[in-house]
């Protein structure tokens, strides 16, 4: 009996042209893997360096102390933390009703043609350069009334409205048609259907969108740079005055360029980036869980 020698003409391994094609394919597939890997590595590097340089700054005085003077020696970022919280709260209070109502109009009331027009408007708003929003509010409000938390919050709410409107629209549209039909069949008035059934069913999506918009607003610099950029170093709670914020404070510390100031900027950046990423991850996980529970 002869040994089983595979016939080279009918081998199962690729050869010739096929081999070349498979090699090409493998190269491109590896390239896509490399691209995805690169993006993840960049994200991890960003977080790693922010942590490496910023974590040493964290202390009680850093978190609560007044803002540092120009050379960055002493002090902390307490007023900026409070100011960012205040600003984001005001802007979300403005953006949430506008965004949800717009989504509601698109989902429940608008005719296809009007709906298309308003949708285009939302897309345009989402695509506005944020610095243009900043200079718009600067010309409209700040130039006449001076810098204030209110005017900065208005600018931030323009950033937030399309985010909230788009995500709310999506989750309102995902409300099962059977709920609406059941309510209609029972003769329930439209507003009761919307307020009592549709909005509660879509609420997890709307809440997630709001939280994500809040996180987005907390990190924005360009819209507020012209509208709240105070010279004082202490706590400022009056919304009619310019309040310090984390992003603008980082911007200022970097511009001063003193080593102590830059170190403080790293500390603030670490706080900002970890908070924003944690909120993003938390909101997504929560949304997935609550939607699964509701069976959407």
């Amino acid at each position: 009996m002869s040994a089983i020698n595979p016939d080279p003409a009918h081998a199962l391994t690729a050869s010739g042209n096929l081999r070349r094609r498979q090699a090409v394919s493998r190269v491109f597939v590896s390239a896509t893997i490399a691209a995805a890997g690169l993006a993840v590595v960049v994200l991890l590097l960003l977080v790693y360096y922010a942590a490496k340089r910023g974590i040493g700054q964290l202390s009680w005085t850093f978190l609560t102390g007044h803002l540092p003077p120009y050379d960055g020696v002493g002090g902390g970022i307490g007023p900026a933390l409070v100011g960012t919280g205040e600003l984001v709260l005001i802007s979300t209070l403005i953006a949430l009703p506008v965004g949800v109502l717009t989504a509601l109009y698109l989902a429940e009331f608008a005719s296809p043609r009007v709906g298309k027009v308003i949708q285009t408007g939302i897309e345009q708003m989402a695509g506005l350069p944020t610095i243009v929003i900043g200079i718009f509010i600067f010309g409209l409000v700040t130039k006449h009334f001076g810098q204030s938390a209110i005017s900065a919050a208005l600018a931030l709410s323009i950033v937030q409205v399309p985010l909230i409107a788009r995500a709310s629209l999506e989750s309102i549209r995902r409300v099962p048609g059977s709920i609406r039909e059941a309510a209609d069949a029972l003769g329930v008035a439209r507003w009761r259907t919307i307020v009592g059934l549709i909005l509660p069913t879509a609420s997890s999506g709307i809440v997630t969108a709001t939280i994500l918009a809040l996180a987005r607003a907390a990190g924005e610099t360009a819209p507020i740079l012209l509208n709240t950029n105070p010279t004082g170093l202490g706590y400022q709670l009056n919304p009619l005055q310019a309040v310090p914020t984390i992003p603008v404070e980082i911007y200022q510390l970097l511009n001063s360029g003193y080593p102590a100031a830059v170190a403080k900027a790293w500390g603030a950046a670490f706080l900002l980036i970890t908070t924003i990423l944690a909120v993003n991850i938390g909101a997504r996980v929560w949304l997935r869980r609550s939607e699964r529970k509701r069976g959407i």
Partner: peptide, 24 residues
């Protein structure tokens, strides 16, 4: 896992990117 991580990149505030840009 990778999808949300890539989307996280879009959530990094621009001022933090600026800081990283200057010093790294």
């Amino acid at each position: 896992v990778i999808g949300p991580l890539v989307e996280m990149l879009a959530a990094v505030p621009s001022v933090v990117l600026g800081l990283i840009g200057i010093y790294l």
